Structure formats: C-alpha cells, structure tokens
Simulated scan of single mutants.
Amino acid sequence: MTRYTVALLVGSLRKESLNAKLAGALVKLAPAEVSFQRVEIGDLPLYNQDDDANPAPQVVRLKEQVATTQGVVFVTPEYNRSIPGVLKNALDHGSRPYGQSVWAGKPAGVMGISPGAPGTSMAQQHLRNILAYLDMPTLGQPEVFLQAKEGLFDADGSIGEGSRGFLQGWMDRYVAFLGRNAA
C-alpha cells in the first residue's frame, strides 16, 4: 500500500479559527495510508525578491516541508472576497526563485468555512487561479463551501453527523486524486 504525506496549510492565523478547526477535523477523516503535516505560515517574513538568494529560516522550513510531501490541502477563510494575505505570502515564498517552485506538480485540495452562506467561494476561486499558474493539479469536485452552523462539529472537534458523509466523500475523492496525480 502506498503511503502519502500531505501538507496542510490553513490560511487563518486567528486563535479560534474555524478553518483551523475544520483542518483538524478533516485529518480525522483520512485513511491510514495518508498522513497530514500542518505547515506553519504565520511566521514567514513578507515576500521580497531581494531575499531569494538568502531566504529566512522560516522560508527554508516551509519549502523543505512542502518538498517532502506528495500533495497539499489548503483550508482557507475568505477576506474581502479573496484569500488572506498570509496564504498568498506563503504561496509566493514557495514559488520562488523562479523555476524552483515547491508547489509544481503537487495535487491540491481546496476547502474553507465561513459564518456566511457563500462559505469561502470567492477565496477558493482566486486560490484555484493561483494554483493553476503554480502548476498544481487541483481536485475540482466536490467543492467544499461550508457555512459554520450549530452541529457542524462534534464536542470532540470531529465533523458532526450531518456533514460527515459529505466531507468523507471529499476526502475519499482527494485520496483517489492524490493517488492518480502524485509524482
């Protein structure tokens, strides 16, 4: 049985982040052959091309963590109808210097949760455009635009019964997609 390690990037720095909670619950749905590695992005310096030749230790860590994985899952909130700056900053760091992107070829999954009814649909649309440019094959269906509602999470932080089947279906599809697309 092939084992996969998947980088998990959460686009929120908030202590009580719904997206961090979703990421933690998602990991519990993974089969035994898939492990997730949470990648810290909140301590990255702002991207500056002048630093490409001598990246900060946090940037080196990000690139090394992503380089050792076979896929990436992004769990992102929506800020002003787009992705948070901290996530864009991480994507920029990982893609540089030109021609040395750690993202290229990594099968991606995208999801997010928000208090609003549209979930994180606009942020995900923008993120998918970026991932296409970064040469990351991205799972198209099912899309996950979650609205935070009572019962979405159980008391232990797992996905509640009402949404478990849907999110398990997403996980199953992502794992199959990962198997077809991992280098």
Results as ranks from 00 to 15, higher is better:
residue 56 A to W: 05
residue 13 L to Q: 15
residue 99 G to R: 13
residue 113 I to C: 01
residue 23 A to C: 08
residue 167 L to G: 02
residue 169 G to A: 10
residue 55 P to H: 09
residue 5 T to G: 12
residue 168 Q to H: 09
residue 105 G to L: 09
residue 62 L to S: 14
residue 142 P to W: 01
residue 123 A to E: 09
residue 64 E to T: 14
residue 166 F to R: 00
residue 111 M to P: 02
residue 143 E to Q: 12
residue 55 P to Q: 08
residue 44 L to S: 12
residue 145 F to V: 03
residue 107 P to F: 04
residue 32 A to P: 12
residue 57 P to N: 08
residue 35 S to K: 13
residue 122 M to R: 13
residue 95 S to W: 11
residue 96 R to N: 15
residue 8 L to G: 14
residue 174 Y to Q: 03
residue 63 K to F: 03
residue 14 R to D: 08
residue 143 E to G: 02
residue 98 Y to A: 15
residue 169 G to I: 02
residue 11 G to C: 09
residue 173 R to Y: 02
residue 117 A to P: 00
residue 3 R to E: 14
residue 183 A to G: 14
residue 56 A to V: 04
residue 149 K to Q: 14
residue 4 Y to V: 09
residue 106 K to V: 10
residue 167 L to S: 04
residue 121 S to A: 15
residue 44 L to F: 10
residue 160 G to M: 00
residue 3 R to C: 08
residue 182 A to G: 07
residue 20 A to N: 05
residue 149 K to C: 03
residue 25 A to G: 13
residue 68 T to N: 15
residue 21 K to V: 01
residue 154 D to S: 09
residue 43 D to I: 10
residue 47 Y to E: 09
residue 102 V to F: 04
residue 4 Y to C: 06
residue 128 R to M: 07
residue 65 Q to V: 10
residue 146 L to M: 01
residue 70 Q to Y: 06
residue 159 I to C: 01
residue 75 V to S: 04
residue 114 S to L: 01
residue 57 P to Y: 06
residue 152 L to C: 03
residue 182 A to H: 10
residue 31 P to C: 06
residue 28 K to G: 11
residue 115 P to Y: 01
residue 179 G to L: 05
residue 87 L to H: 06
residue 95 S to I: 02
residue 172 D to V: 05
residue 163 S to E: 02
residue 156 D to P: 06
residue 17 S to T: 07
residue 122 M to Q: 12
residue 39 V to F: 06
residue 104 A to H: 08
residue 105 G to P: 08
residue 83 I to Y: 08
residue 156 D to Y: 03
residue 7 A to P: 10
residue 102 V to Y: 07
residue 6 V to S: 07
residue 75 V to F: 09
residue 161 E to W: 00
residue 151 G to S: 13
residue 107 P to S: 06
residue 105 G to R: 07
residue 60 V to T: 13
residue 99 G to D: 13
residue 146 L to R: 00
residue 162 G to N: 12
residue 86 V to R: 05
residue 92 D to H: 05
residue 1 M to V: 10
residue 60 V to G: 05
residue 85 G to N: 06
residue 44 L to Q: 11
residue 150 E to T: 10
residue 119 G to R: 01
residue 11 G to M: 07
residue 43 D to P: 04
residue 16 E to W: 03
residue 49 Q to T: 08
residue 58 Q to K: 15
residue 130 I to E: 04
residue 136 M to S: 05
residue 30 A to C: 11
residue 10 V to A: 12
residue 82 S to A: 14
residue 153 F to Q: 02
residue 100 Q to G: 13
residue 121 S to V: 13
